[in-house]
Design a protein around this nucleic acid. Structure first.
Lengths: 207, 207
DNA sequence: AAAAATAAAAATGTATACAAAAATATATTC
DNA sequence: GAATATATTTTTGTATACATTTTTATTTTT
């Protein structure tokens, strides 16, 4: 099941599944060599996570990427993640920061798939947010990051966003180590908003 | 399918389904007179909407209500819905306001179930937010309101929140009619936060 | 020839059946 | 008698089969 979900997500990211055309359960069941039941299960999950949309009675389909959605996702991320970091700050330990640094280093690897890279990026952020002990907000933020994942092909491809992002992560961790929460939060807000703006620019340019 | 979902939600709200005990697919399929497949589908949806939680390998169960979750849901609602109203304001017409007023009047009915009442309440808010033309933020807010729905038994029961809420709706619509967006947004923030605080207080007191 | 009505096809939703995995109970060993 | 190992039961996941609904194609009527 998890395997199937990942395969589907990967195929959505790299464009193997046509956008804007209804997906047929039977086609998918043949493509992935399972019956229609697990396909239905997977579709249900992916629909709920925004990887697929139900277009009325035309069936589910891979949604087109659009800059407005990206903008909104990043705006919500900015709002909610800054709030989470604020809650988290008093509880951040050296262990937390160490874990985050380790993850950031592993992002150096050049043999990572888009999906893996995106997941590590989220794991880094999540390491900080976890200690906020706000599971409900955390969950929503997790969903938002999941949805941002659909745009990963763009963000980690043409934009060469990798190094910039990693450097900002390092700065952020340094500010947290120096116990400067306000500046850290400001940097996080900027980190997210700039990423969003760049993605939006790119989407506007290509569409 | 929609029917089954509503039945399950209703039974979760009014406590027919025990909290904190794993749900068996077969039990449910007998209880609701369907096979296990639609039950599985429904569980998947309800899990994604927070009505059920997967407790490790102990199976899915109805989550306990807790004040912290309620607090967080309302905090997020406050943040995001105020943002939506800001976006919406320039596009709000008399027709929009009229629709909202009609819905608010229909909330007078005393023969409404908890689920129906909650849905009307959301429909009123949604009428305003729709014209913001921010479907992505709108969707997240819709999910948050769906989750708040799990607490409806409390909010519309012991707290007798009905009249207060309806009056605030009317005030809000008046402010929007008078084209006073800042005050309207402030009132909305208060409307949401007070509702949240009252619910949290109640939950703290009873638990 | 265009619109409406009917028939054919396809797709989805659901039930049943079976297989794999998990949990529980029973037996066995020390 | 406690701990481990084995067998039994339960629960879930998936395949197949069928019914219902939706879509598409064809025919009929004006």
């Amino acid at each position: 099941m998890l395997e199937l979900l990942d395969q589907l997500k990967a195929d959505i990211i790299n464009g193997c599944l046509e956008r804007g055309r209804p997906l047929r359960q039977q086609e998918l069941s043949e493509r992935y060599n399972v019956s229609r039941i697990p396909i239905r299960d997977a579709i249900s999950v992916l629909r709920n996570q925004g990887w697929l949309v139900a277009h009325g009675k035309a069936g589910v389909m891979v949604p087109e990427l659009n800059w407005m959605e990206a903008e909104d996702l990043y705006q919500m991320r900015s709002l909610l993640e800054c709030q989470l970091l604020e809650y988290a700050f008093p509880n951040i330990t050296y262990e937390t920061l160490g874990k985050a640094r380790d993850i950031n280093r592993s992002l150096n690897g050049s043999d990572l798939s888009l999906l893996e890279r995106g997941r590590l990026n989220w794991k880094l952020h999540a390491t900080l947010y976890e200690v906020a002990n706000r599971p409900t907000i955390f969950n929503v933020v997790a969903i938002l990051n999941e949805q941002v994942g659909r745009y990963m092909g763009f963000q980690y491809g043409p934009l060469q966003y990798r190094e910039i992002s990693q450097n900002e992560h390092e700065e952020l961790l340094d500010l947290l180590t120096q116990e400067q929460p306000e500046q850290a939060i400001r940097l996080l807000r900027q980190h997210i908003e700039v990423a969003g703006q760049q993605l939006v620019e790119y989407l506007k340019a290509t569409s």
